[in-house]
Write a protein that binds this DNA or RNA. Structure first.
Lengths: 111, 111
DNA sequence: TGCATATACCTTGTATTACAAAGTACATGG
DNA sequence: CCATGTACTTTGTAATACAAGGTATATGCA
Protein backbone atom coordinates (compact mmCIF):
# COMPACT_ATOMS: atom_id res chain seq x y z
CA UNK A 1 0.00 0.00 0.00
CA UNK A 2 2.54 2.46 1.20
CA UNK A 3 4.86 1.14 -1.45
CA UNK A 4 2.50 2.46 -4.07
CA UNK A 5 2.19 5.86 -2.48
CA UNK A 6 5.92 6.16 -2.53
CA UNK A 7 6.25 5.87 -6.27
CA UNK A 8 7.24 9.10 -7.88
CA UNK A 9 7.92 10.81 -4.58
CA UNK A 10 11.31 9.17 -4.22
CA UNK A 11 12.63 10.96 -7.25
CA UNK A 12 11.62 14.21 -5.60
CA UNK A 13 13.34 13.19 -2.36
CA UNK A 14 16.57 12.27 -4.10
CA UNK A 15 16.64 15.59 -5.94
CA UNK A 16 16.00 17.39 -2.65
CA UNK A 17 18.92 15.59 -1.02
CA UNK A 18 21.20 16.50 -3.91
CA UNK A 19 20.10 20.13 -3.69
CA UNK A 20 21.72 20.21 -0.25
CA UNK A 21 25.01 18.99 -1.68
CA UNK A 22 26.56 16.45 -4.02
CA UNK A 23 26.31 12.88 -2.82
CA UNK A 24 26.63 9.27 -3.91
CA UNK A 25 23.92 6.63 -4.07
CA UNK A 26 25.03 4.61 -1.07
CA UNK A 27 24.97 7.72 1.10
CA UNK A 28 21.64 8.93 -0.31
CA UNK A 29 20.11 5.61 0.68
CA UNK A 30 21.45 6.06 4.20
CA UNK A 31 20.22 9.64 4.45
CA UNK A 32 16.73 8.82 3.21
CA UNK A 33 16.43 5.70 5.32
CA UNK A 34 16.44 7.93 8.39
CA UNK A 35 13.06 9.28 7.27
CA UNK A 36 11.58 6.41 5.27
CA UNK A 37 11.94 2.80 4.24
CA UNK A 38 14.08 2.69 1.14
CA UNK A 39 16.35 0.12 -0.47
CA UNK A 40 19.39 0.18 -2.73
CA UNK A 41 17.61 -1.71 -5.45
CA UNK A 42 15.28 1.23 -5.80
CA UNK A 43 17.79 4.05 -5.76
CA UNK A 44 20.40 2.82 -8.23
CA UNK A 45 17.98 2.49 -11.15
CA UNK A 46 16.54 5.85 -10.14
CA UNK A 47 19.97 7.47 -10.35
CA UNK A 48 20.28 6.10 -13.84
CA UNK A 49 16.98 7.69 -14.77
CA UNK A 50 18.14 11.03 -13.39
CA UNK A 51 21.22 10.80 -15.60
CA UNK A 52 19.11 9.93 -18.63
CA UNK A 53 17.05 13.05 -17.98
CA UNK A 54 20.26 15.09 -17.71
CA UNK A 55 19.19 16.24 -14.26
CA UNK A 56 22.51 15.15 -12.76
CA UNK A 57 26.12 14.75 -13.80
CA UNK A 58 28.54 12.38 -12.10
CA UNK A 59 32.15 12.29 -11.03
CA UNK A 60 34.22 9.70 -9.22
CA UNK A 61 35.94 10.33 -5.90
CA UNK A 62 38.27 7.79 -4.38
CA UNK A 63 37.47 6.62 -0.90
CA UNK A 64 39.93 5.51 1.74
CA UNK A 65 37.44 2.99 3.05
CA UNK A 66 36.22 1.11 0.01
CA UNK A 67 35.60 1.45 -3.71
CA UNK A 68 35.37 4.82 -5.43
CA UNK A 69 32.21 6.80 -4.86
CA UNK A 70 30.18 8.01 -7.80
CA UNK A 71 29.02 11.46 -6.81
CA UNK A 72 25.93 12.99 -8.37
CA UNK A 73 25.58 16.72 -8.90
CA UNK A 74 22.40 18.54 -9.89
CA UNK A 75 22.48 20.31 -13.25
CA UNK A 76 20.52 23.54 -13.83
CA UNK A 77 17.87 21.35 -15.46
CA UNK A 78 17.91 19.22 -12.32
CA UNK A 79 17.32 22.25 -10.11
CA UNK A 80 14.46 23.30 -12.37
CA UNK A 81 13.00 19.80 -12.25
CA UNK A 82 13.21 19.84 -8.47
CA UNK A 83 11.35 23.15 -8.30
CA UNK A 84 8.67 21.86 -10.67
CA UNK A 85 8.27 18.63 -8.74
CA UNK A 86 7.95 20.47 -5.44
CA UNK A 87 5.10 22.47 -6.96
CA UNK A 88 3.51 19.26 -8.23
CA UNK A 89 3.93 17.69 -4.81
CA UNK A 90 2.07 20.57 -3.15
CA UNK A 91 -0.69 20.36 -5.75
CA UNK A 92 -0.94 16.64 -5.32
CA UNK A 93 -1.27 16.89 -1.55
CA UNK A 94 -3.92 19.57 -1.96
CA UNK A 95 -5.84 17.44 -4.44
CA UNK A 96 -5.90 14.44 -2.16
CA UNK A 97 -6.76 16.55 0.86
CA UNK A 98 -9.63 18.17 -1.02
CA UNK A 99 -11.07 14.71 -1.58
CA UNK A 100 -10.45 13.57 1.99
CA UNK A 101 -11.90 16.69 3.55
CA UNK A 102 -14.41 18.24 1.16
CA UNK A 103 -15.33 21.81 1.96
CA UNK A 104 -14.06 22.66 5.41
CA UNK A 105 -11.49 21.11 7.71
CA UNK A 106 -14.00 19.24 9.84
CA UNK A 107 -13.10 15.57 9.91
CA UNK A 108 -15.34 14.31 12.65
CA UNK A 109 -18.49 13.33 10.80
CA UNK A 110 -18.22 10.36 8.52
CA UNK A 111 -20.42 7.62 7.11
CA UNK B 1 5.61 11.54 -13.20
CA UNK B 2 2.48 12.64 -11.51
CA UNK B 3 1.02 9.33 -12.57
CA UNK B 4 3.47 7.62 -10.27
CA UNK B 5 2.69 9.84 -7.32
CA UNK B 6 -0.92 8.98 -7.71
CA UNK B 7 -0.48 5.29 -7.17
CA UNK B 8 -1.90 4.12 -3.92
CA UNK B 9 -3.59 7.40 -3.18
CA UNK B 10 -6.51 6.69 -5.48
CA UNK B 11 -7.65 3.82 -3.34
CA UNK B 12 -7.75 6.19 -0.41
CA UNK B 13 -9.73 8.73 -2.44
CA UNK B 14 -12.29 6.20 -3.56
CA UNK B 15 -12.80 5.01 0.01
CA UNK B 16 -13.20 8.64 1.10
CA UNK B 17 -15.86 9.23 -1.54
CA UNK B 18 -17.74 6.11 -0.46
CA UNK B 19 -17.57 7.25 3.16
CA UNK B 20 -19.75 10.19 2.15
CA UNK B 21 -22.34 7.88 0.67
CA UNK B 22 -22.84 4.83 -1.53
CA UNK B 23 -21.96 5.38 -5.15
CA UNK B 24 -21.21 3.61 -8.41
CA UNK B 25 -17.99 3.56 -10.39
CA UNK B 26 -19.10 5.83 -13.20
CA UNK B 27 -20.17 8.48 -10.71
CA UNK B 28 -17.02 8.09 -8.60
CA UNK B 29 -14.95 8.77 -11.70
CA UNK B 30 -16.95 11.93 -12.32
CA UNK B 31 -16.67 13.08 -8.72
CA UNK B 32 -12.92 12.52 -8.56
CA UNK B 33 -12.28 14.04 -11.98
CA UNK B 34 -13.35 17.38 -10.56
CA UNK B 35 -10.26 17.31 -8.35
CA UNK B 36 -7.82 15.21 -10.34
CA UNK B 37 -7.13 13.47 -13.63
CA UNK B 38 -8.61 10.00 -13.43
CA UNK B 39 -9.84 7.47 -15.94
CA UNK B 40 -12.38 4.66 -15.96
CA UNK B 41 -9.76 2.09 -16.83
CA UNK B 42 -8.16 2.82 -13.47
CA UNK B 43 -11.24 2.81 -11.31
CA UNK B 44 -12.99 -0.36 -12.42
CA UNK B 45 -10.09 -2.68 -11.57
CA UNK B 46 -9.70 -0.76 -8.33
CA UNK B 47 -13.33 -1.42 -7.40
CA UNK B 48 -12.70 -5.09 -7.97
CA UNK B 49 -9.76 -4.96 -5.60
CA UNK B 50 -11.89 -3.28 -2.94
CA UNK B 51 -14.39 -6.11 -3.27
CA UNK B 52 -11.65 -8.71 -2.99
CA UNK B 53 -10.51 -7.05 0.24
CA UNK B 54 -14.11 -7.12 1.51
CA UNK B 55 -13.96 -3.38 2.03
CA UNK B 56 -17.14 -2.88 0.01
CA UNK B 57 -20.32 -4.72 -0.84
CA UNK B 58 -22.37 -4.06 -3.95
CA UNK B 59 -25.99 -3.85 -5.00
CA UNK B 60 -27.68 -3.03 -8.28
CA UNK B 61 -30.05 -0.12 -8.77
CA UNK B 62 -31.97 0.38 -11.98
CA UNK B 63 -31.52 3.69 -13.72
CA UNK B 64 -34.07 5.48 -15.86
CA UNK B 65 -31.31 6.83 -18.06
CA UNK B 66 -29.16 3.84 -18.93
CA UNK B 67 -28.01 0.48 -17.67
CA UNK B 68 -28.29 -0.55 -14.02
CA UNK B 69 -25.83 1.02 -11.63
CA UNK B 70 -23.66 -1.12 -9.42
CA UNK B 71 -23.53 0.71 -6.12
CA UNK B 72 -20.67 0.19 -3.71
CA UNK B 73 -21.10 0.44 0.04
CA UNK B 74 -18.33 0.53 2.63
CA UNK B 75 -18.22 -2.38 5.07
CA UNK B 76 -17.00 -1.90 8.66
CA UNK B 77 -13.66 -3.29 7.45
CA UNK B 78 -13.75 -0.68 4.69
CA UNK B 79 -14.26 2.11 7.20
CA UNK B 80 -11.37 0.76 9.26
CA UNK B 81 -9.18 0.57 6.16
CA UNK B 82 -10.05 4.15 5.30
CA UNK B 83 -9.08 5.33 8.78
CA UNK B 84 -5.79 3.43 8.60
CA UNK B 85 -4.99 4.77 5.16
CA UNK B 86 -5.71 8.32 6.23
CA UNK B 87 -3.19 7.87 9.02
CA UNK B 88 -0.67 6.46 6.55
CA UNK B 89 -1.33 9.35 4.20
CA UNK B 90 -0.52 11.85 6.95
CA UNK B 91 2.65 9.96 7.84
CA UNK B 92 3.68 9.79 4.22
CA UNK B 93 3.23 13.53 3.71
CA UNK B 94 5.24 14.19 6.87
CA UNK B 95 8.01 11.91 5.70
CA UNK B 96 8.35 13.58 2.34
CA UNK B 97 8.11 17.03 3.88
CA UNK B 98 10.85 16.15 6.35
CA UNK B 99 13.11 15.41 3.42
CA UNK B 100 12.10 18.51 1.48
CA UNK B 101 12.46 20.80 4.48
CA UNK B 102 15.11 19.31 6.77
CA UNK B 103 14.81 20.44 10.37
CA UNK B 104 11.03 20.60 10.35
CA UNK B 105 10.15 17.19 11.68
CA UNK B 106 12.49 14.27 12.28
CA UNK B 107 16.03 15.19 11.42
CA UNK B 108 18.49 14.17 14.05
CA UNK B 109 22.03 14.49 12.85
CA UNK B 110 22.32 15.63 9.32
CA UNK B 111 25.83 15.53 7.98
C1' DT C 1 -37.14 2.03 -38.43
C1' DG C 2 -32.43 3.39 -37.93
C1' DC C 3 -28.92 5.98 -35.80
C1' DA C 4 -26.55 9.09 -32.75
C1' DT C 5 -25.75 10.16 -28.03
C1' DA C 6 -25.34 9.56 -23.17
C1' DT C 7 -25.00 6.40 -19.60
C1' DA C 8 -22.72 2.51 -17.45
C1' DC C 9 -20.00 -1.51 -17.19
C1' DC C 10 -15.72 -4.36 -18.12
C1' DT C 11 -11.27 -6.14 -20.27
C1' DT C 12 -6.77 -6.11 -22.53
C1' DG C 13 -2.18 -4.53 -23.27
C1' DT C 14 1.63 -1.48 -22.10
C1' DA C 15 4.63 1.34 -19.31
C1' DT C 16 6.44 2.50 -14.96
C1' DT C 17 8.74 1.52 -10.85
C1' DA C 18 9.71 -0.27 -5.86
C1' DC C 19 12.05 -3.95 -4.05
C1' DA C 20 14.40 -8.33 -2.93
C1' DA C 21 18.11 -10.83 -4.17
C1' DA C 22 22.22 -11.70 -6.07
C1' DG C 23 26.55 -10.50 -8.01
C1' DT C 24 31.02 -7.61 -8.53
C1' DA C 25 34.75 -5.18 -6.55
C1' DC C 26 37.69 -2.64 -3.23
C1' DA C 27 39.96 -1.97 1.45
C1' DT C 28 41.24 -3.27 6.10
C1' DG C 29 41.96 -5.96 10.31
C1' DG C 30 42.25 -10.26 12.63
C1' DC D 1 43.46 -15.10 3.54
C1' DC D 2 39.21 -14.32 4.60
C1' DA D 3 35.43 -11.97 7.07
C1' DT D 4 33.50 -7.42 7.27
C1' DG D 5 32.13 -3.02 5.67
C1' DT D 6 31.78 -0.09 1.80
C1' DA D 7 29.97 0.80 -2.78
C1' DC D 8 28.16 -0.14 -7.26
C1' DT D 9 25.06 -2.77 -10.52
C1' DT D 10 21.78 -6.12 -12.59
C1' DT D 11 17.82 -9.33 -12.73
C1' DG D 12 13.25 -10.75 -11.83
C1' DT D 13 8.69 -9.95 -9.74
C1' DA D 14 4.64 -7.51 -8.36
C1' DA D 15 1.65 -3.68 -8.39
C1' DT D 16 -1.06 -0.42 -10.84
C1' DA D 17 -2.38 3.82 -13.87
C1' DC D 18 -4.07 4.42 -18.23
C1' DA D 19 -5.35 4.26 -23.15
C1' DA D 20 -8.03 1.83 -26.03
C1' DG D 21 -11.50 -1.00 -27.13
C1' DG D 22 -15.65 -3.66 -26.29
C1' DT D 23 -20.59 -4.61 -24.40
C1' DA D 24 -25.11 -3.13 -23.15
C1' DT D 25 -29.15 0.01 -22.01
C1' DA D 26 -32.17 4.02 -22.81
C1' DT D 27 -33.74 8.14 -25.20
C1' DG D 28 -34.35 11.55 -28.87
C1' DC D 29 -34.84 12.46 -33.50
C1' DA D 30 -34.94 12.27 -38.55
Amino acid sequence: MKTQLKKGALELCVLAVLARGDSYAYDIVNQLSRSMAISEGTVYPLMRRLQDEAWVTTYLVESSAGPSRKYYQLTPAGHAALAAMQREWREFVSEIDSVLVPGSVAMEHQQ
